[in-house]
Structures are given as C-alpha cells and as structure tokens.
Design a binder for these strands. Structure first.
Lengths: 340, 340
DNA sequence: TAAATCATCGGGAACGTTCCCGATGATTTA
DNA sequence: TAAATCATCGGGAACGTTCCCGATGATTTA
C-alpha cells in the first residue's frame, strides 16, 4: 500500500454518479442536497474510509482549522493542564493546535509571533511572557483580522477576549484566611509588576489587609518571577528585614514551595512559626512538607473556555470581546496550621 | 486591514518581472536559478513580508509539514519535557506539531489514531497507553507509508524506530546502589507488564539482585499503573506481606513519592527504616521529604532525538529503523540515607 | 565550425476542496 | 393556465503553491 490510494471526494462522486460539488455539499450538511443523496454519500464515504484533506479544504475555504497556542512553558502543572483543556475543546471542534513555547522570553515571543503567517491559522491563544509589556506584535495580528484570546497572564492593552481566574477574589480570600487564622503580619511574594495577574492578586492582598485595618509594609511586598527559585530568594530577602512577618501569601504554589524550603532552611517551622498559603493547587502542594494551603485555579477549565471563546471569535467576526473570570476554592492544608 | 492583502508568490513575481515558478524555485534554493535573481527574490520577499501558505504548499508538494504527537498525558513532568524537546526540533525544521492526548486509555488511543487522515500529516510520534498491547492501529499507519517513531513507552511489535532511555542499565544501577548502601531486601514497584519499559527495568532489577546473590521474592514485585496513587497502593500491599523489605525501587518518581507517603503514613522513617529510589528526576523528587534519590531520564533529549529521527524517516523513505538508547545519571539524595 | 552541453527561466497542469452561478424539472401560486 | 417558486444538482473557476517539461541563448566540446 502507498499514500497514493488515498480516496478523495471525486472517488465518492464517481461511485455514486454525482458531481464533486454535490458530494462536497452533502458532506458539509448543506441545505440544497436531498436527504437521500446525503445518506448515500455518507454511507459510501465511511465505507471507503474517506477522510478530508485539510490542506485542500483550508486553501479553498480560507478556514485553516489551525489554532496557535503560545505559552511560556509547558513543563509546569498549570500550563500543561490548560493545554489539556484547550486540546479537548479544539479536537471536539476539529481544530488542530500549533504549539509555540516562548520560554518566558519576550524576545523569543516576539520572534515567534512575528514569524507567524496569518494565512496559516485562524486564531491565537496566548499567555504572555513575564517581561512582556509592549504588545505591538499581538496588535499586529489582530489588525490583520485574526482573533486572539488571552488567558492567565493577560496584558492590559489589546482589547480582546480574556479568560482569567478571579485573581482579586482568590488573593483576598487567601489573605483573609491567614488573618482569620491569626497570622496578622503578612508578607506577599508577588510577580512581575506589569501583569494583570500580579496587580489583581496584589490588590486582593491589600484590600484584605485594609479591611482588617492591618498596616501595609512595603518591604514585605516583593516582586520577582514565578519560579520556585524566585520564591526561595524572595523569602531569604524577607528574612533580612528588621521585623519578620508570620504569614506568607505567595502568588503561586511554586513560589510558596520555595518559601517553605527557605523557612525550613532557617530552622523555622512552617505553620507554627510562619503560615504559608499559595495559589494554583499544583500537585506539588500535596507533596511538599507540610502540605500547602492554597486557592485552586481551574486550569483545565480555563483552557476549555479560552478555546471555546476563540472558536466563537473565528466563527463570527463580529463577536464582541468578552472577559471570563473563573473562581476556585480555598483548600485548607497543613502549612497554615499552628499545631499538628 | 484585512486578511485579503496577504501577499503571495505571484506578487513577488510581478514586482520582479519573473514567473511564479522561478520565484518558487528561488525561495526553495533550487539549483537552476541564478544567484542574482535568488538574491533579488529574497530581498523583495522579506521587504513585502512574504510568508508561505503552508496549505497550498502541502497540497502541491504532498509534504504537509505536520507531525502528530500522541501521548497519554501532558500534565506530568516527563511528558511535558519530551514535548518541549519535540517542539524545539520541529520548529527548527519548520514542522508543526499536532497534539493528541490519549488519557492513557487504549480505546481512546485507537479511536484517535484510526481517525487520522494520512494525507494530513507526514509522521507520527507515539508513546503508547499503558494497557495497549494490540498495535494494529499503528501498523495500519505504517502500512500506508507514514513513518512512526515510538519513544519511552514503546511496543514490541512494529519494527520501527524507537527512542528510549537505558531502562535496563538505569534499573540495574538503582538496584545495585540500594544494595551497596546496605538495603538488601529490595522490593520493586513495577508497571504494566507488556510494556518494554516495564520489562527492561524489571530485568535490570533482577540482574542486580542476581549479581549480588540476593534471592528474588515474587511477592515483592508488584505490577500496576504509573501514578503516585498506584505507588501508594503498591506500598500498602507490601506492608501486608509477611516479611518487610528495607529497600524500594520504584519504576518512576511518582510511584516512589507515593511509596514515601505510604511509608510515612505507617510511621516508618524513609532512609533509616526503608530506602527508596525512583526513576525520572521529576522536580517533585526535590520537593518530597526526604528528597528522592533517583536515576534521571533525559526527557527533553528524548523528545529532540525522536523528532530528529522522524524527520529523517520523512525525508528518506528508505531510512532504516533505528533504536536510540540514552543514559541518565544516578542522583543521590536523602531517601537512601540512613542518617541525616 | 557544427554539435553538444549548460545556465537560466517560463508555461501551465496539478494537488483536493469549496463555492459561485446557473440549469432543470417539479411544484406552487396567482 | 401561465408565471413564479422550489428542490436538487452540475460546471468550472478559484485558493497558492510545486514541479514537470520545454525553450532560449550562451558556452563548451569535438
């Protein structure tokens, strides 16, 4: 057997004495084909094992059925879960995913996006790199008529659809939870300042402090990257401050785990001496000792919703940009327990 | 601006008073175009911002520049690292990745593979589901002239290229390391029996025992799945055996972490009472308490090599199937330390 | 000097599908 | 009963690229 004997619409047409246009219309459920011929076409198509050639279809119709997904990494739980959600929704709607990894590097992100040919995909799903503040390369895509949906790490500028977790509410809940548990001197291990996710979580933290009339201490708010390494470094910096906090709210679980490592390294006891809470509900939060209290992020669902939204934009050019905000529960574990 | 003003080869041709065929050949570095015209074509192409239409190219040339990647999950460190490696190599060679997730379910795997149209991709990269023993659906693809490269979880049957870590050697090293450290009663938390990876790691374990004249105890060899959950259950079963081992070699880090959880749950001390060693070097091995001794798997490299091999198969139909076996180092941590 | 080779280019069919437009016979409407 | 509408289908151009084949003038060979 060889590739040559792939069967085409023409083969179905010949088998049924129909024209290729009629077969094509039958396969796409067009209105102007009789129920009987449609049935016969579908029968022959499946018996011959017909599978459409997506390239020919893309060329003729202008719809490529490709969705480009650009994310910083794939090797962490959050992003790989998002991809799973995207993949599910895309496959269901017969879209393929083209994966781009930016390595969280703005230059690489720009390079990848700028080298994209708009004739090769129908839409773009993006979580931007930590340091990306100029979003002109995305605007250029939008200007050429191709929709973008941002998720998780979304920029402020381009007014397009966005899917995020309820960062403000989650951060507020996390901070208030620490306060309720009696940890009132709370530091915040934050992220890169220009990201919305950073700003919203910071705001939730600040508002929770305000609500409980706890003064804000700038030296306890530390901005850096999103890795475990960053969390560890941030925590070590906090150990150098004059007065020590007794609670840590980290912008994500990986930074929280880094903080726990640093705290243990200093001989302090997590929970008893310093309470720690994270954000994500990464599986590592169950593995770290003590287990990490956290606010869950609906990563898979974010992937699904983003993809669903993008598909709507693709199907309808006039679909208005929309924001979807998903909430997650706070999950109590041992890192915020005084006695165990 | 709209999609319509995408520029094509014809536009370059008109700008230079050349034919489309000459421009096409110039862009592909064909031999029969003068250095001067090639230079002019490239200049105009880049100044106009020409990007080739992959669908038209695929249709005309028969080469789709799509690679399908089918894996059980993406939400674990190993597979997401492999994907990163694949992605890098694919992007370098101007291939796109089409991602399929089987959820480690054989039925779903079959369904996805059988619904693939061979005219839509050039090659397939696969790590099979745990329970897959019948590989006819892969054979069907190969029979239609499309190359497959298997990696990590590879089947026995189809004689195609395979990329794996040196499972035998790694398992042997791991087991012998436990023996050298004085843990001589060693159990093995193994995987699904029909997978090569399971068989090779089991063999390495057995041979290391034999070399040191340690009798094999069948009740200490437990076959199940690959998750942390499975590791925990396996370990609990071992706790029910008459005599307890004092060393655990788990087929991967997630199962090892599960075992550690179970051991701690029973009030035993990992390292002092029972030494544990894993396989992968998943980041969780640094987070679990105590940190996990393990044999590293070169996941990123496996992705790269698999993709590289597949591209060679695509470029040359007569390229003979090849096995690549990569080694990883043993990394000592605290789960195999008697005193800390 | 005639024939063969070489370097360089263009014409145009082909890939498999979609979609516009028109055709035809049957049915409904005025 | 004539005109309008409807249901159903086919012809054929078009999408943007590749690639086969042939053409042409220049250079090399015999």
């Amino acid at each position: 057997m060889s590739k040559k004997e792939v069967i085409r619409i023409k083969d179905i047409a010949q088998a049924l004495n129909l024209s290729t246009s009629t077969v094509s219309r039958a396969l796409q459920d067009a209105y102007d084909v009789s129920p009987d011929t449609r049935r016969r076409v579908l029968e022959v198509a499946s018996s011959l094992g017909y599978k459409p050639n997506i390239h020919a279809s893309a060329l003729a119709s202008g719809s490529t059925r490709n969705i480009v997904v650009a994310i910083p990494f794939i090797t962490n739980y959050y992003f790989s879960s998002v991809i799973s959600g995207i993949q599910e929704m895309a496959y269901k709607n017969r879209y393929n995913i083209v994966l781009l990894l930016t390595n969280d590097d703005t230059e690489r992100e720009k390079y990848l996006i700028e080298n994209l040919a708009v004739s090769n995909f129908d839409g773009l799903l993006v979580s931007i790199a930590s340091d990306t503040s100029d979003t002109a390369h995305f605007q250029a895509i939008i200007d050429r008529g191709v929709p973008i949906v941002f998720f998780d790490r979304v920029p402020q500028n381009p007014e397009s659809s966005k899917v995020i977790q309820n960062d403000y509410e989650g951060a507020f809940k996390a901070t208030e939870y620490l306060i309720d548990k009696g940890y009132r001197r709370i530091a915040h291990l934050s992220g890169n300042t220009h990201l919305l996710i950073t700003q919203n979580r910071l705001k939730g933290y600040l508002d929770a402090l305000n609500k409980h009339r706890i003064p804000v201490r700038q030296e306890w708010i530390i901005h850096s990257g999103f890795s475990q390494q960053h969390g560890e470094e941030d925590m070590l910096r906090i150990f150098e401050s004059e007065e020590m906090p007794n609670g840590i709210f980290a912008i994500n679980d990986r930074k929280a785990v880094g903080a726990i490592m640093a705290i243990k390294g200093k001989g302090k006891i997590v929970g008893k001496d310093i309470g720690v809470i994270g954000f994500t509900n990464d599986p590592i939060s169950l593995i770290v000792e003590p287990s990490l209290t956290t606010v869950e992020e609906p990563a898979f669902e974010i992937g699904q919703k983003s993809c669903e939204l993008l598909i709507k934009h693709i199907a309808n050019k006039n679909f208005l940009p929309k924001q979807i905000i998903l909430s997650g529960n706070l999950i109590e574990r041992n890192s915020t327990r005084r006695i165990r």
